[in-house]
Amino acid sequence: MATPAEIAERVQAQFGTAVLETVLEGRLPHLVVEAGRLQEVCAFLRESPELKFDFLSAVAGVDLGEQLQAVYLLYSYAHHHAFTLKVNAPRDNPVVPTVSGIWPAADWHERETFDLMGIRFSGHPDLRRILLPEDWVGHPLRKDYKYPESYDGITLRRDEEDWPDPGAEALYK
């Protein structure tokens, strides 16, 4: 078992400049690393005997506005400690290297993140939409996502005259 500070220290000692930001306070201590060296950092986290993060709990995509962020929530069954890794990618070309070679679990999590957030994972063996239909347009979890008017000829908007949309604000006042 290593504290988040120790884990961050080890990663920093190994990769130095690849670590862009270290956040140790708060409920989710994490590192923000350079996208280009993500795979190396992940391989280190998984293989290093003191860290041994063998379990990728989830990959979450976050819309930060200027940038999109991929969040890797890690856990180690060997040492019972948890850590989080974040990678930023520019919004206009959000590409992050895949870690599915390191954790097979990442395969589906990355597909989901691609599907809903639109982060492309370079090197992923089978990057296609998973929850939404293959011909869906857009990535719904982005903050600027516009709901489509129709899909395959099915109207998705309610008829405003008969059923005026009260809006989420009105519903949950």
Partner: peptide
């Protein structure tokens, strides 16, 4: 092939 019950809960 999953996603038939996708309701966008995260959204």
């Amino acid at each position: 092939d999953v996603g038939f019950l996708h309701r966008g809960l995260e959204k």
